[in-house]
């Protein structure tokens, strides 16, 4: 039994690794092609405002130095091989290694995303459960209305709204940035960082709620109408213990899976929220890199976000695999 478990886990991990490798290769190739065919001129992007001072000969020299005159596939393999060696290149706008920037920005974003992820998950689950238990009542209607409204609200608009209300009108929170302006990095306190984090995290959390809440609500309604809940009632079980024993596990599973699988939406939301709040995270770096033609940084971010979303889906798979006996124990006996 144990040996079989181990074997199954091994196969699972092997298949996942193959999938990740092929996905990464495909993503790298496609994004490389897209960038190559985009109107971004890497030389112009590198030199910036001094472009007028650079003659055609100098341009050609730079192109030759960077290998831009070589065939497309050769360029791709050059880039790919240095990528495999762990070199993501140097960001043109920050003039620092891409890996360093991603690391630093990711730490900022991580706090933001984890906060939003946990709050939206817990809040969404609770709201969904309450709505399903009180199905058809005014509480259910309010929660549903709230969720539908949120689900159709763009992130940036929500961000602007919270900015107007909490930062401008009420003045409770700073208008933007990750730390107070004009303070030395080593003088920034944790409280100040948290103070700057609250509004973007709030924006992201509020929006993430709708998805989990609506799915949980529907799933719990199905579970409550299921034969096994009817039978549990026939056996004399009722009220909260009934929900705890038979409802919770059956409902929590899809909610957890959904929440992990929503990493892509979380990342997408963070891009917009960070832009609105000028919060120095990965999302903002992505927008910057795109707008200012910073090809190495953009490609690095694409690869990183692919990995991030893939890990989210992988975690969803693993959690389902471990929690659900139907996948965990497979057919036995």
């Amino acid at each position: 039994m144990n040996k079989r478990m181990l074997q199954k886990t091994g196969t699972f991990l092997l298949l996942k690794s193959i999938r990740m490798a092929t996905l990464l290769i495909a993503i790298c190739f496609i994004s490389f092609l897209l960038i190559k065919n985009s109107p971004i001129d890497p030389i112009r992007a590198y030199i910036g405002a001094d472009m007028l001072k650079v003659g055609p000969e100098q341009r050609e020299k730079i192109a030759a130095y960077w290998g831009l005159d070589e065939p497309l596939m050769v360029q791709f393999f050059n880039w790919g091989s240095s990528l495999l060696a762990g070199d993501l290149g140097t960001s043109m706008i920050f003039r620092r290694p891409v890996s360093e920037i991603i690391q630093e920005r990711f730490m900022n974003s991580l706090i933001l995303m984890i906060t939003a992820w946990v709050i939206s998950g817990v809040l969404g689950f609770v709201l969904g459960v309450v709505a399903a238990m009180k199905k058809g009542t005014w509480i259910d209607r309010i929660i549903k209305w709230y969720c539908f409204t949120l689900a159709s609200t763009p992130t940036f608009w929500m961000g602007l709204l919270t900015l107007i209300v909490f930062a401008v009108w009420l003045g409770w929170f700073p208008v933007g940035l990750g730390v107070p302006a004009g303070v030395l990095a080593q003088d920034v306190t944790l409280a100040e960082r948290i103070h700057h984090l609250i509004l973007p995290a709030l924006t992201l959390s509020i929006l993430g709620v709708a998805n989990v809440a609506l799915h949980t609500r529907q799933k719990l309604i199905d579970v409550l109408a299921s034969d096994y809940v009817l039978f549990a009632r026939a056996k004399g079980e009722k009220g909260f213990p009934l929900f705890w024993k038979h409802g919770l596990r059956n409902v929590a599973l899809p909610a957890i899976t959904l929440q992990f699988a929503a990493f892509s939406e979380l990342f997408g939301g963070a891009v917009l929220a960070e832009q609105v709040f000028s919060y120095p995270g990965l999302g903002q770096a992505t927008v910057e890199a795109g707008l200012r033609g910073d090809v190495p940084l953009l490609l690095g971010l694409v690869i990183f976000s692919t990995l991030f979303v893939f890990v989210g889906n992988l975690l969803a798979d693993i959690v389902t695999y471990l929690v659900d006996p139907r996948t965990r124990e497979g057919k036995s006996l």
Partner: peptide, 20 residues
Amino acid sequence: LRGSEISLIPQSVNYLDPLM
């Protein structure tokens, strides 16, 4: 009374909690 004095034997395996 249900479950203690009167007991139901349901029709199919669907009446058992799939995760327990």
